[in-house]
Computed example of a mutant assay.
Amino acid sequence: MNKDLTSSQVARKNVLNNPYALSQLETHLELGGLQFEGETVFTKLQAAEILAVDERTVDRYLTNHSDELQESGYRVLRGKALKNIKLAYVNDTNVVDISSKTPSLGVFNFRAILNLAMLVTESDRARAIRSRMLDVVIDVIAEKAGGHTKYINQRDQDYLPAAYIEDSYRKQFTDALRDCLSMGHFKYAVYTDKIYKAVFCENAAEYKKVLRLATKDKTRETMYAEVLKAIASFEHGLAVQMRKESERLGRMLRPSELDAMLAEAENNPFLKPAIEDARVRMASRDLGFRDALHDKLEHYIQSVPEGDFDRFLGEKSRALEEQLADAESLEVLKRLKDR
């Protein structure tokens, strides 16, 4: 996966969709600009000066990346908006590069000027801004996550219920393996790996290597709620199917028979949306939050949406210790237990 900001739109969006990093960047970069309609904006000439390029270079990037820059906040002022910015900045004492006769004016907001800085390749100034961006993004995520990102998944308010439910289905599955599969004790590790591979294409050892986990670290404690739910769906379905088939045959199942069930489950159209969602969430969030690349899930990588930054870094996200100390969270777990 290419993580170069100049050539990866996913990498650029992972910066631009992070409101906490943007706030810090606006403070630390001190790019100047004009205050207009409640935000900081930059004219084309100001953008060129900030990035140490000429205006023709800015025009070229506006042409070649028009959709992306407009999505980030670049816009052309006309009519009332143009009149208002002229009233604010065009007079005898406040000289800016806005002609009183211009029929339109293109302006970058702060998000769009950062986007432009991530695109421009022929500028040392742009390169320095990109380097500063990445430093701030890393610092902000680490700070919001309490100093490390290994368990950033646990800051999601959906994590505890998902982990509790998955643990319940895990017990049903291991009991079914014990009672219904003719295989040595190593069957638990073997079929845990096979379920992991069915859901996110990696076994436990591969997953730990990607996330740089220690041997003693428990893999499921680092997984996102959506991944745990997909695993629980597999475990529950296989547990029920194993018991029914073992009872029908009047004997324990052979590994080849369970393998056939697992392959059928992996291609089940009812499970496919949950599996696809789990792969996208794991691949995208681990790259965006943990700087961890799942090679086998590379084609599932998307930019991390702004809502996920709030979900894992915002006011509603809390460390697991805080959630466990919360009476409302404990009440949810109690209801799940009493089902």
Rank of each mutant, 00 (worst) to 15 (best):
Q323H: 02
D67F: 07
M1D: 04
E247T: 14
G106L: 12
M252A: 11
A239L: 01
K334L: 14
L69H: 13
Y207L: 10
L271Y: 11
K218D: 14
E245C: 03
A232K: 10
R251N: 14
V140N: 01
T121E: 06
R111D: 08
R111K: 15
F173I: 01
S182C: 05
I152C: 05
K272H: 04
V137K: 10
R125E: 15
N84R: 11
K337T: 04
L119G: 12
L213H: 09
S23L: 13
R178D: 14
R130M: 01
I275M: 09
V240S: 01
A162D: 07
E26T: 10
V107C: 07
T40M: 09
S329L: 09
D92Y: 06
T222N: 02
A117M: 03
F186D: 05
L287P: 07
L320E: 07
M183L: 12
G288V: 03
D193H: 13
K86F: 00
S329I: 11
T93W: 04
H28Y: 12
G32L: 09
L134D: 06
E55S: 10
N91I: 00
R318A: 15
D139M: 08
I231C: 15
M118K: 11
A327N: 07
E331P: 00
H148I: 02
H236R: 15
F108D: 14
F234M: 13
S246Q: 08
D67Q: 14
E206K: 08
I165G: 12
L181K: 14
R155C: 08
Q35I: 04
D97Q: 12
G106R: 01
S284P: 13
S131W: 00
M1Q: 06
L258I: 12
N153Y: 02
F110A: 10
K44P: 00
S23H: 10
L333D: 03
L228Q: 15
A21K: 03
L51S: 01
D167Y: 04
K3W: 02
K209T: 08
V90L: 00
K171E: 12
V90N: 00
D158G: 07
D217T: 07
S100T: 03
H148L: 03
R132K: 13
V136N: 02
V240Q: 08
L249C: 10
K3Y: 05
V137Y: 01
D310M: 11
D97W: 01
I113S: 09
L160D: 08
A145W: 01
E26C: 06
F289I: 13
K80P: 05
H236I: 00
E315R: 12
N14K: 09
Y151F: 05
E235I: 01
Q154M: 02
K209P: 02
L258R: 11
M183V: 13
E49P: 00
Q323S: 03
A325V: 06
D124P: 02
L51N: 08
A176N: 04
F312W: 05
Y151V: 02
Y191S: 04
V280A: 15
Y159G: 05
N2M: 03
H236C: 10
L297E: 09
D59Q: 09
